[in-house]
């Protein structure tokens, strides 16, 4: 009976049905393959994978703890003489003690770009073009005049008698006294003296003051760090372009810096996010954290160093302050 049903028309019909089903399946597979992100191999991929690893013998710091931030758009990090930790964001400044316990917060008048603490505990909070000064209790004390249209303050340092603003817009360091009176500027190009000032291709420009009064300033377009006297004279510089760990990568690095109490210069970079410690003469001391420590695309790693020798890194994208401790000689975190 069954045999009798297999006429050529039935066979042809079955073959056609199978072919149509197979065709639909193939089409579906092709569409899924074509439209699925994972299946797409970019023949023009720009890869930095080979530069992501750091030699183990240089990675001598451990992330001992983190502070989880509950603050919108954290942009600036500072520590004071008591090692209290300050983070400034879009609307407020939050404060923790050295152990990472919340110690207060206050609202700011304008979204912050960067923060510095003065010797008397004054809290200088810089917005895009001007500074607001708050007392140690967070009360508003004064508002300084604007640096003008086009200003973009991206870094700040405070000493006993001066506040230095790194303005990525004008490519200058502005030196004020602690009451907000403009004293001088650092970085005006003098081509006749073969001095070209600061090259700032992007909003990465930072300044830090050492305990001996020296100023360390990034010159990111030159891929180097420069040392100035408070009067604005260039005393020294170092840094070389390199994807290798000893140099600075890309077109505008380092993005941030800090100075330890011992005089070491701590730098952070974008593109290959990494944090390193240099000797004052520019030789690489150690690596605090390499690119694999941070999410891809991490930028804006503001830095601070406290009296205990710890390096603090503001990783705003991750919503964290990462606190790094140098390993002891035996290779263990003290």
């Amino acid at each position: 009976m069954d045999e009798g049903r297999r006429t050529p028309a039935v066979v042809l019909y079955r073959v056609l049905v199978v072919a149509v089903i197979a065709g639909v399946l193939i089409l579906l597979a092709v569409l899924i393959f074509r439209y699925s992100e994972g299946a797409h191999m970019n023949p023009y991929e720009y890869s930095i994978e080979e530069f992501m690893d750091v030699p183990e013998e240089l990675l001598l710091w451990d992330e001992a703890s983190v502070i989880e931030l509950d603050i919108a758009q954290p942009a600036g990090l500072a520590v004071d003489a008591q090692d209290r930790i300050f983070v400034a964001g879009a609307q407020e400044v939050a404060i923790w003690n050295a152990e990472g316990t919340a110690a207060g917060r206050f609202s700011t008048l304008a979204p912050a770009r960067t923060i510095a603490i003065g010797p008397q505990g004054q809290i200088f909070v810089a917005s895009v073009d001007h500074v607001n000064v708050y007392g140690p209790d967070g009360s508003h004390e004064s508002e300084w005049t604007s640096l003008g249209e086009g200003a973009f303050i991206s870094g700040m340092a405070a000493t006993d008698d001066a506040v230095y603003l790194a303005d990525a817009g004008s490519k200058l360091i502005w030196r004020f006294d602690t009451s907000g009176r403009l004293l001088s500027q650092i970085g005006r190009p003098r081509p006749s003296a073969d001095y070209h000032g600061f090259l700032i291709p992007s909003r990465c420009f930072d300044v830090a003051a050492a305990t001996d009064g020296a100023l360390w300033i990034t010159n990111p377009g030159r891929l180097r760090v420069e040392k100035y006297s408070p009067d604005g004279s260039l005393d020294a510089y170092w840094g070389e372009p390199s994807m290798g760990i000893e140099g600075f990568c890309g077109c505008c690095n380092p993005t941030h810096l800090a100075v330890t109490r011992q005089g070491h210069v701590v730098t952070s970079e974008k593109g290959l996010p990494r944090v390193k410690v240099y000797e004052p003469d520019g030789s690489l001391n150690t690596v605090v954290a390499g690119p694999r420590h941070f999410a891809p695309g991490t930028v804006g790693l503001d830095l601070a160093a406290d009296s205990m020798g710890r390096v603090l890194v503001l990783d705003g994208g991750a919503g964290l302050v990462r606190i790094f401790v140098r390993r002891s000689e035996e290779g263990k975190t003290p």
Partner: peptide, 29 residues
């Protein structure tokens, strides 16, 4: 002029691959 360089796209040669775009976004501005 010292220390500046200019970069110009030769459009007929450009295939729109975005490799340079990634480089500029990652390391530049």
């Amino acid at each position: 002029e010292e220390p500046y360089f200019e970069y110009v796209i030769d459009e007929p040669l450009c295939i729109g691959c975005a490799k340079c775009v990634t480089g500029c976004n990652t390391f530049g501005n």
